[in-house]
Amino acid sequence: MNSLPKRIIKETQRLMSEPAPGIVATPATDNLRYFKVTITGPAESPFEKGFFHLELFLTDEYPMSPPKVRFLTKIYHPNIDKLGRICLDILKDKWSPALQIRTVLLSIQALLSAPNPDDPLANDVAEHWKSNEKDAIKKAREWTELYAASSE
């Protein structure tokens, strides 16, 4: 814990004191590199009014390597698979050390507003989205009510 880089302390301080709207990220008391995250579903999206829990882990290489992020709450989304893994370029090859936890979480929040079925991770969901977007959105909304209703 003593070796925690100043950058991580600084990011954590700012996340706590100036949280981004709809995003709460708190470090675990026993491991300050592990964060519990809650993202509120963006308005006018099928995920509206849902509380989506994620886990975020900063590896020793951070910020030279991206954080590891995963959804814990089940979500019906073409870029998120059933294990919660996220298909997002900045979490992979498009990572830059200038990015931060805050920007990563804002990008994920944006991904909820704008699903991208052309770069799918969950193929069946992406197919559903492309073939019948209305029905897919309906299903996503049902899942949100079913799995993301509680903030706990």
Binding site: M16, P21, I23, V24, T26, A28, L32, F51, E152
Partner: peptide, 25 residues
Amino acid sequence: VMVPTTEKSISSSSSSSLGSFHDDE
């Protein structure tokens, strides 16, 4: 000891499950 607070909808109902950040400096 810093505890995050954001929109009431989250903090009021979920504060118990949120952690806290212990700032020594």
